[in-house]
Amino acid sequence: MNNLIVSNTALGLTGVFVGLALWIGYREKLGIAKDLIIATFCCVIQLFVVGYVLKYVFRVDSWLLTLLLILVIIFNGAYNAKGRSNDLKNSFPISLLAIATSTLVILLVLVFAGAVKFIPSQIIPLTGMIVSNSMVAMGLCFRTMNSMFTDRRSQILEMLALGASPMTASKGIIRDAIKTGLQPTIDTAKTVGLVALPGMMSGMIFAGADPVLAIKYQIMVTFMLLGITSISSMIGCYLGYQSFYNQRQQLIK
């Protein structure tokens, strides 16, 4: 892995690109200077912190610390999914349950199948990938449900009036929301490798690994992401639709 050499000077020089973005923003009067500067600082600080934390965790190599970090990642993911839910009721506990369940299921399968080892340098990056995809799927599910429960309000009322349960009346929406949650992962899987080499595979190739080994890992990751987004979308939607009804099985909001 000795062909990875980013000197601090080289890193500093790439900062020129930020200057370029700033200049374009100024010239075109985009009014994004403040955002750009904040983004730059966030990016640098967050990554440095993460880098040093990971370095520490990898060196200590304790399963307890690894587990703790997994929980932190899951918690952050759920918090972010809640932020994308347009104030859907109970979105935090729902995403926490959906993300935690799907992450644990996938990690257990991968570890027991021997595909990965329960060591921090493998488990933590994987958890990051799983949770971020699950989080995006949950956000999509929540937003789809929110807009559909508004658009199809009268049709739902009609079914309830005929004596349908909220579950039956919401079936179509649940199905569409799960589909929407899965769509990005399916779309990505279709073009994987054709347009961009996915992050993990690029990373391995960058670090000098055999491309064929890298694609094996990438196939594993793609399958895993399909699994994760479907499990979490399903849990999220089947719990989430209930937030649109009250105890008397009436539509609210």
Binding site: S154, L157, E158, L160, A161, L162, G163, S165, R248
Partner: peptide, 21 residues
């Protein structure tokens, strides 16, 4: 009616909406 099951009740007191789909 608060003491009745809403789904069963709606089958006994049935509402037909103004612009059905």
């Amino acid at each position: 009616i608060e003491t009745l099951d809403p789904i069963a009740y709606r089958r006994r007191v049935s509402y037909a909406v103004q612009q059905p789909t």
